[in-house]
Amino acid sequence: MPTVVTNDNVTLNYIDEGAGPVIVLIAGFCAPATTWVMQQDALVKAGYRVLALDRRGHGDSESPEHGATMARHGQDVENILASLGVDDAVLCGGSMGASTIWSYVSQFGTGRVKAVVSVDQTPKMINDAEWSNGFFGLTDSNKDTFFADGVPDTGKGLPKWKSALPILKLVAKLRAMPKMVSPDTPPMKALLHDHAVADWREVVATVDVPVLMVAGRESQFWPCTHAADSIAGNPLGRSVVLENCGHASNMDRPMEFNAALLDFLGSLPQ
C-alpha cells in the first residue's frame, strides 16, 4: 500500500486504484479500507479513481497514542488530499468514517470536495427532546459510560445471524479476514467517546455541495429516519433507505448500495 505522512508524523496507508474522477472511501470504527472492496471494484469499472483510507489506528496505518479525536481524523483527511493533490473529490464515509468527513468539512470547508456520501451514520448520536435519531438508548445522562465496554448490542435491527452473512461474503472476496482492530485500547476508547458526543447536524444542514445520506432500514444502531431528517433543510441533500439492510449498508446490500452510489455520482455536475 502507498502511504502519506501527516503533519504530526503519523504514517497512513491507503489503496489507490483506477483512473478518473476521485472518490475517497473512509471506513468506520475498527474497520480497514479493504472493507470497501465490493464498492472499489464497481467504482473502478465505472471509471472512477478510488482512494480508500486506513485512518490512524485502523488497518495498516500507524496506531499512535495521540490524535484519537474526530478533529485530528478530519485533519488527516486534509493532509492526505493535500499530499495527493486531490481537489475535486467525492468523500464517502461509512459510520464513523462519515463523521470523519463532517469533521474535515467543519475545519477545512469544501474547497477540495465535490460531494459527500454518508453511509448509515446519524449526525448526532445522543438522543434528546429535539432529536430522536441517535444511538438507541444513548442520552446525555449516560454518555460517559454507555460505550465503556465497547459498542453495546441494542437488540434492534437486522438480527445477528443475518449480519454475519456480509462478513462471509467479504472474506470470500478478500480471501482473508479483514484486519479489524481492537476497540479496547485507550486511544480507540477515547475516539469512540469523542465520536459519540459530537453533533454534526449544522454541518450537514449547511454544507454547500451535494450530499447523499444512506440509511439501512434495519440498522442496529439508530432509526433510518436520521437520513431524511438531517438533510431536510438542505436543498443539495438527498436520502435513500436500503431495505432488508443493517448498519453495514455497503456490505449488507452491496448491489443495492452500489446502484444508489453510482446513481448519485452520475447526477453530479461534470
Score class of each variant (00 low, 15 high):
residue 192 L to H: 08
residue 178 P to C: 11
residue 234 N to P: 00
residue 182 S to G: 08
residue 214 V to S: 06
residue 239 S to L: 02
residue 239 S to Q: 05
residue 205 A to D: 04
residue 192 L to Q: 11
residue 234 N to S: 05
residue 212 L to I: 12
residue 234 N to G: 01
residue 210 P to Y: 10
residue 237 G to T: 09
residue 219 S to H: 07
residue 226 H to L: 06
residue 212 L to K: 05
residue 216 G to R: 10
residue 237 G to Q: 02
residue 238 R to Y: 07
residue 207 V to I: 13
residue 235 P to Q: 04
residue 200 W to V: 06
residue 237 G to R: 00
residue 200 W to I: 05
residue 210 P to R: 01
residue 214 V to A: 09
residue 234 N to V: 04
residue 236 L to Q: 03
residue 192 L to R: 13
residue 189 K to F: 12
residue 198 A to I: 09
residue 190 A to I: 11
residue 184 D to G: 00
residue 235 P to R: 00
residue 229 D to S: 12
residue 222 W to R: 14
residue 214 V to C: 05
residue 207 V to R: 00
residue 240 V to K: 03
residue 230 S to V: 04
residue 187 P to I: 11
residue 236 L to E: 03
residue 224 C to K: 15
residue 233 G to I: 08
residue 242 L to M: 02
residue 186 P to Y: 12
residue 229 D to N: 13
residue 181 V to K: 06
residue 241 V to S: 05
residue 209 V to R: 02
residue 222 W to C: 15
residue 238 R to N: 08
residue 184 D to A: 02
residue 238 R to V: 04
residue 218 E to N: 10
residue 231 I to E: 14
residue 230 S to M: 06
residue 220 Q to P: 06
residue 227 A to I: 10
residue 200 W to H: 13
residue 196 A to P: 00
residue 196 A to K: 02
residue 230 S to L: 02
residue 223 P to Q: 11
residue 212 L to R: 08
residue 206 T to E: 06
residue 239 S to M: 03
residue 190 A to N: 07
residue 186 P to T: 13
residue 198 A to P: 05
residue 234 N to A: 02
residue 231 I to G: 14
residue 226 H to Y: 14
residue 196 A to R: 01
residue 177 M to S: 04
residue 201 R to I: 15
residue 230 S to K: 05
residue 194 D to I: 14
residue 183 P to H: 10
residue 203 V to W: 09
residue 197 V to Q: 03
residue 204 V to D: 04
residue 206 T to M: 01
residue 194 D to R: 11
residue 185 T to M: 01
residue 190 A to F: 07
residue 174 L to R: 00
residue 175 R to A: 00
residue 228 A to D: 14
residue 229 D to R: 12
residue 229 D to L: 11
residue 225 T to Q: 11
residue 238 R to D: 05
residue 192 L to I: 02
residue 242 L to S: 07
residue 224 C to R: 13
residue 206 T to C: 02
residue 187 P to Q: 09
residue 209 V to Q: 01
residue 194 D to H: 13
residue 180 M to K: 00
residue 190 A to R: 07
residue 223 P to Y: 12
residue 238 R to E: 09
residue 192 L to T: 02
residue 195 H to L: 15
residue 188 M to Y: 13
residue 176 A to D: 14
residue 225 T to W: 12
residue 234 N to K: 03
residue 174 L to P: 00
residue 197 V to E: 11
residue 240 V to T: 06
residue 203 V to R: 08
residue 189 K to Q: 15
residue 186 P to M: 08
residue 175 R to D: 01
residue 178 P to T: 09
residue 219 S to T: 07
residue 236 L to P: 10
residue 235 P to F: 07
residue 186 P to V: 15
residue 203 V to H: 10
residue 203 V to T: 10
residue 178 P to Y: 07
